[in-house]
Simulated assay, not measured.
Amino acid sequence: MTTIVTILTPGYADWETALLNAGAREYYQIETRFATPGGEPVTSAGGLKVMPNMAVEDIEVDRVDAILVNGGTIWSTEDYPDISSVLRAAHAAGTTVGGICDGVTALARAGLLDSVRHTANGPESLPETGYAGVAHYVESPRAVLDGRIVTAPGTAPVSFMGAVLETLGLRNGDLDFYLGLYAAEHQAA
C-alpha cells in the first residue's frame, strides 16, 4: 500500500497538508500517517490536537513513499527540530520528499535544495539554513516538482497536493479534475 508520512510540529499550519492527506486517504486509499519529533502530541496553529502515529526518529524511509514537512512557525526559530538525517535518508532511498511553507526550510537545512529547482515563501526564507541552492530557486505561486523533491509556498496547498500525488504516479484526468475543483476559486471570473 502507498504510504505518506506528514511531519507535524507544535504550532503546525493545519491547512497546508489537510487537503492532500484527506484526498490521498479518502479518494486514493493511500495510507496517511503522521509523525512528530519524539512522537509527542502537537497542537496546530488553529488549535487542532494530533496524537501522531510515530516519532520522526522511527520513520522507516524504505517503507514509505513520501515524507512531507508541514509548515509552521517553529521552522524559522532556533527551536526547530533537526530532521535532516531522516530527509536525506528518504531522498537517498528514492522516497518523495516535500515541504510546504516554512517546512521548505527543513529541506534546505538537509541540503536537498542545493541542486534542484524549488520554491518557498520567498528566497529570503532560506539563507539562514546553510542553503546553497539560490541558483535553482524559482519564484512561483505554485508548487515546484523536480525529480522527487516537491516544494511550495504556504499559499499553494492545492498544487502541492497535485505535485506530491504526481510523484506517486497518480497524475491522470481524475487528479486534474480534483485539482481544478479545489482551485476553482482562484480562476479568473
Rank of each mutant, 00 (worst) to 15 (best):
N21K: 12
V61C: 06
Q187E: 15
A120P: 06
G39N: 03
A163C: 07
E57R: 13
M161R: 13
Y80F: 15
T95Q: 07
V134H: 13
V138Y: 08
S84E: 06
I4F: 01
W15S: 10
A110N: 11
Y28I: 07
A24K: 08
L113S: 07
P127T: 10
R117K: 15
N70F: 02
P123W: 01
I59K: 09
P141T: 05
T9M: 09
A18N: 06
T6A: 15
Y178H: 10
G47R: 04
H91E: 07
R88W: 01
Q187P: 00
V116W: 01
T36R: 07
F160Q: 06
V50H: 04
E185M: 05
S44E: 12
G154L: 09
T95P: 11
L170G: 01
E139M: 12
S85L: 10
T105A: 13
A106K: 09
L165C: 01
G173W: 03
L179G: 04
D146F: 00
A35L: 04
G99A: 12
V56D: 09
T105M: 14
G38F: 06
T17A: 06
V150F: 01
E60N: 14
S140I: 11
I83C: 07
G122L: 03
E78V: 03
A120T: 12
G169Q: 02
A132M: 11
T95V: 15
H118R: 11
G169M: 00
I30C: 04
D65L: 05
I83R: 11
P81Q: 13
V144E: 06
Y27C: 10
D176V: 15
I67S: 13
L112V: 14
I149D: 00
D174M: 11
E31I: 11
P141R: 12
I67N: 10
G23M: 12
H91I: 01
T36K: 07
R63G: 04
A66Q: 03
P81L: 13
H136R: 14
R148V: 13
L8C: 06
V69W: 04
A120C: 13
G147L: 05
N53V: 00
